[in-house]
Amino acid sequence: MAAGGDHGSPDSYRSPLASRYASPEMCFVFSDRYKFRTWRQLWLWLAEAEQTLGLPITDEQIQEMKSNLENIDFKMAAEEEKRLRHDVMAHVHTFGHCCPKAAGIIHLGATSCYVGDNTDLIILRNALDLLLPKLARVISRLADFAKERASLPTLGFTHFQPAQLTTVGKRCCLWIQDLCMDLQNLKRVRDDLRFRGVKGTTGTQASFLQLFEGDDHKVEQLDKMVTEKAGFKRAFIITGQTYTRKVDIEVLSVLASLGASVHKICTDIRLLANLKEMEEPFEKQQIGSSAMPYKRNPMRSERCCSLARHLMTLVMDPLQTASVQWFERTLDDSANRRICLAEAFLTADTILNTLQNISEGLVVYPKVIERRIRQELPFMATENIIMAMVKAGGSRQDCHEKIRVLSQQAASVVKQEGGDNDLIERIQVDAYFSPIHSQLDHLLDPSSFTGRASQQVQRFLEEEVYPLLKPYESVMKVKAELCL
Results as ranks from 00 to 15, higher is better:
350 T>H: 14
79 E>R: 15
278 M>S: 04
308 A>F: 03
308 A>D: 00
120 D>Y: 08
317 D>N: 10
5 G>K: 15
372 R>L: 03
373 I>S: 02
205 Q>V: 06
269 I>Y: 05
268 D>A: 11
33 R>W: 05
322 A>C: 12
151 S>F: 07
353 N>F: 06
178 D>K: 04
384 N>E: 03
346 L>W: 08
68 N>G: 10
425 E>M: 11
77 A>F: 14
57 I>F: 06
84 L>R: 11
184 Q>E: 13
167 T>S: 07
360 E>H: 09
300 R>E: 03
333 D>P: 04
104 G>S: 13
323 S>C: 07
474 S>V: 15
65 M>D: 00
372 R>D: 04
226 V>S: 04
228 E>S: 12
71 N>V: 10
441 D>A: 09
379 F>R: 04
42 L>F: 03
41 Q>T: 08
9 S>T: 13
128 L>Y: 07
290 S>T: 10
25 E>T: 14
130 L>R: 07
445 D>W: 08
406 L>R: 06
197 G>C: 07
295 K>Y: 06
260 A>Y: 05
220 E>H: 10
240 G>V: 02
15 S>N: 15
179 L>V: 10
481 E>C: 13
222 L>Y: 00
383 E>L: 02
338 R>E: 03
64 E>I: 07
394 G>S: 10
340 C>E: 04
240 G>F: 05
226 V>H: 01
323 S>R: 04
41 Q>L: 11
301 S>I: 09
271 L>T: 07
451 G>E: 02
177 Q>R: 02
35 K>E: 07
74 F>K: 15
21 Y>P: 00
392 A>T: 12
221 Q>F: 13
227 T>M: 07
8 G>D: 15
256 A>K: 02
161 Q>S: 02
290 S>F: 03
206 A>Y: 02
31 S>V: 03
6 D>F: 11
318 P>K: 04
121 L>Q: 10
30 F>A: 02
119 T>V: 13
409 Q>P: 02
280 E>W: 04
365 Y>A: 09
229 K>W: 04
413 V>W: 14
81 E>P: 02
68 N>T: 08
95 F>G: 00
27 C>K: 12
46 L>Y: 00
418 G>H: 01
206 A>C: 10
140 S>C: 14
358 I>C: 15
280 E>H: 01
177 Q>I: 13
246 K>G: 03
395 S>M: 08
314 L>I: 09
49 A>D: 01
399 C>L: 05
163 A>T: 02
229 K>M: 10
484 L>W: 15
139 I>L: 12
259 G>E: 03
131 L>M: 15
405 V>R: 13
424 I>K: 15
178 D>V: 03
208 F>V: 04
158 T>F: 00
477 K>E: 13
245 R>P: 01
44 L>T: 06
93 H>E: 11
